[in-house]
Write a protein that binds this DNA or RNA. Sequence first.
DNA 1: GCCGTTTTCGGCCCGACTGTTTTCAGTCG
Length: 582
Amino acid sequence: MDKEAVAAVLLEIGTLLELKGENPFKTRAYQNGARVLEGLSEPLETIVAEGRLEGMAGIGEALREKITTLVTTGRLPYYEELKASIPPGLVEMLGLQGVGPKKVKKLHDELGVDSIESLEAACQAGKVAALDGFGEKSQSKILEAIAFRRQFASRHRLVDALNEAEPILEALRGHPDVTRCSTAGSLRRWKEVIGDIDFVVSSRNPAAVIAFFVAQPRIASVLAQGETKASVLLESGIQADLRVVSDREYPFALAYFTGSKEHNIAMRQRAIAEGLRLNEYGLFRSHEETRDPALREECPDEEAIYRRLGMGYVEPELREDHGEMAAAAADSMPRLVQWTDLKGSLHNHSNWSDGRNSLEEIAEHMQELGLSYWAITDHSRASFQANGLDPKRLREQIRAVGQVNRQVADEGMDFRLLTGTEVDVLKESLDFPDDLLAELDVVVASLHVPGSSEAENTRRLVMAASNPQVHMLGHPSGRLLLERDAYKVNLDAVIDACAAHGTWIELNASPYRFDLDWRLWQRATAKGVKCVINCDAHRLEHAGFLRLGAGIARKGWLTKRDVVNTLPLETLRRELARKRGK
DNA sequence: GCCGTTTTCGGCCCGACTGTTTTCAGTCG
């Protein structure tokens, strides 16, 4: 078993223990253990074989044994027995809003409820309301939660959440009672998939702000409304939460609600080590009274909070407990790439294959955006469903691109289109011969029709990475967020092959992909692999993906130096040529 | 289940909201 599989088992054990009514800290120990494994930068098999689980923070004797068993045998009797003792429907019930482990246990013990369906029936029969600790209200809330779950999967792509959040944030910003405001939560951390939208506002008149918030357009229902917070369900199915605090408390609330939960826990522990106590209202010089203003440390902004704890500032994108606490404490945080550093995109389509726009339209639009270059990398012939180009059409396209570039040059513009292809990685070869690839400025190699085995897909991508004509691998995992999982592939081996051959890896900035995953970039750059943030644009407005992709690159700790398409055109041309010399 | 320069036992991050309660448990973020 690899580390993802082992981590998934540990997480599930945590959930099952919760349902059994186990000590919540035991549950957390399993969740922590899973996160430790996910953050490992080398194969778990190696670590286990070399006995290096010993001494790893968060992995004690019990977890070490269980992990070792899972890695070496692929099974764990403890887990299998635990799983068999709990009906699978109970885990599903935990996903309902307002239903936690205690309630699930009670519903199961007292009513024999073992699935969402039987829970719904029990509610309709009025049995839930009659239970001790439940009532009419909780029964109807459960029915609502079941209906909500049926209507919407409660996870949303970043871009959809941004499109909902930005107009509301603008509205809040314009309200006279709002002093400061921001998004928070996973949206501010730029997670590729988010659960709900969080806003934090400072105001002297919270009631007015809350009333204004719940009256925003496109709200389907108000889920909760108190004196300091409110929750609404937007018509799009995304939940949005608002928290209102005083301006003095604002930096603390913003930090707190930005999370992640793991980052917050680490921050609190650091505060305790400094003899302080941190919560969403402030940083206090006492363990006794948590909200006494006289004991509050003054921090006008988030930077000041980190400074007071003896750390450098941590950008929101990095607050994932992925090493940022140690880096900030050592004041060695990287200077992250910014989307305005990007000079163009090296993987894009035109109406020659499955894109919408002509070469002329693309050139005009991208130079108006202030970009320096834009590669046209249409599909190769194997992607016939996408109208892939054969060698003859590709050579025609090379000439057409040259023509557009001559026009652009005649107008005195610095902008250039680059010729290229997104060549299919077939079973034994690339879809174009090397001599044709050599005629192109940019070659992206992508696996579009994966095989069923990890070994085969890995072999194919390693083959592509080893071809001197290939500049970069496109969307190396093939995942489509919330739609399709990654194909089976050993990305560690692929990263190693890219490192060995100087081949770059794309960070596909399409909001459906964000592939390579941000969690793997620290590992890739540590091995010297460069990143290219590509739009994979199929229409003009997809140029906006550069902003999304840059945010994901920041989550991966990437600096300007790590990202090839921050280079100006002439330097980029040299790098493209140099890559082929390797 | 993890962890320790106060501890090898007894802690483990913290507060708001909701509903069922009459002082609090459960859930959520």
